[in-house]
Amino acid sequence: MIADLDPSICNGCGVCVQICPANVFDMGAGTPVIARTDDCQTCFLCELYCETDAIYVDPDCEAPVAVDREQISPLRGKFRRESGWGEQAAEHPNLHWRMDEIFRRAREA
């Protein structure tokens, strides 16, 4: 579930408020606040849409988890990078099209 929105990284663009499918965020004073943690569906999509990597989602989908900002710091932006989202597209191409070949190799294994 949504675990962190670091206001010291966030630029206040408001995109996460708009795109979260579960309407988890409210716009606060300058930066959004996590207003409805329990509604979070752990989809990681706010991380994709956040250009500053201010958001961190913990993989536990059953209950909120408290995270340590220092500890998660190396993980910030990794999902967006690996997805080749936005400006990352050229360097990290979307290899999803290789799924068929992977399934075929599993069948042959």
Partner: peptide
Amino acid sequence: DIQAIMPHVQPNFVAPFDRR
């Protein structure tokens, strides 16, 4: 070779493992 490309095939599949 599939392990190596997995983050770029299904990035959300690897995310929960990475984070744990």
